[in-house]
Design a binder for these strands. Structure first.
Length: 209
DNA sequence: AATCGTTCCAACCGCCGGAGC
DNA sequence: AGCTCCGGCGGTTGGAACGAT
């Protein structure tokens, strides 16, 4: 995938040397200010390429390898709920990137779903318009810490529904007990800050097949 | 062993929304 | 209000890896 550019900006696969430069730059200056990263790191890459490489490959917490069964299950259900909003779906899968999820969906899940007991001439399910439920702010209780990481861990454990189990398309407000994300929170929780619900309760909102 | 077809996934591209001026 | 810049997102591409013949 080695490509050139009219303006001399390097494209294509990243080398180990480039990875090391980018990693060093982010460690030194932190994430963000991507427009300055190529200069700071001494990379002949565009800002977007640097950002993408970091987010999809170099970021420390990224999980590689095959998707587990529960992850696949989560992807399928969240896709029913959210549609092709890969960043939101990935936000619910610790260590997985939007690109990973998108690739996995396009190569595996879609294939499985479209083949599940469907005649050849029937319209594939992924072509059916999905009514996307968009995230809306709503009250987050003091049990906020039980969301995210913990709720994901508890995904396969039976337990009672929580107080904050409610569909995300309710017009609710952030209450005074809401705590902004802290340093201890996992980065993958960020994009869910406005869409808060218990992982187990997702299943209740999804339409029956 | 060689060829061809398919799968997988890293990376690119174009677009969009928010912020700043 | 309009423009520019930037970060971020989803769709798509292309090449390496793999499997079938």
């Amino acid at each position: 995938m080695q490509k050139g550019s009219l303006y001399g900006v390097r494209k294509g696969a990243w080398t180990e040397e480039e990875d090391a430069l980018l990693r060093g730059c982010v460690q030194r200056y932190g994430e963000g200010e991507w427009h300055r990263v190529p200069q700071r790191a001494g990379l002949n890459r565009c800002r977007k390429s640097c950002r993408l490489r970091w987010l999809n490959y170099l970021k420390p917490y990224i999980k590689r390898g095959k998707f587990q069964d529960d992850e696949v299950d989560m992807i399928i259900r969240l896709h029913k709920l959210l549609g092709n909003r890969w960043s939101l779906i990935a936000g619910r899968l610790p260590g997985r990137t939007a690109n990973d999820v998108k690739n996995y969906w396009n190569t595996n899940v879609r294939k499985v779903i479209t083949c599940q007991g469907k005649p050849e001439n029937e319209k594939p399910q992924d072509l059916v318009k999905v009514e996307v439920i968009k995230p809306c702010p709503w009250i987050i209780s003091k049990n906020f810490s039980s969301l995210g990481v913990e709720s994901h861990r508890e995904l396969n454990e039976s337990r009672e529904p929580c107080v904050h189990d409610a569909p995300p398309n309710r017009n609710l407000q952030i209450d005074n007990d809401f705590e902004p994300r802290s340093e201890t929170m996992e980065p993958w929780l960020d994009c869910w800050s406005g869409l808060s619900f218990d992982a187990e309760s997702i299943w209740d909102w999804l339409p029956e097949n």
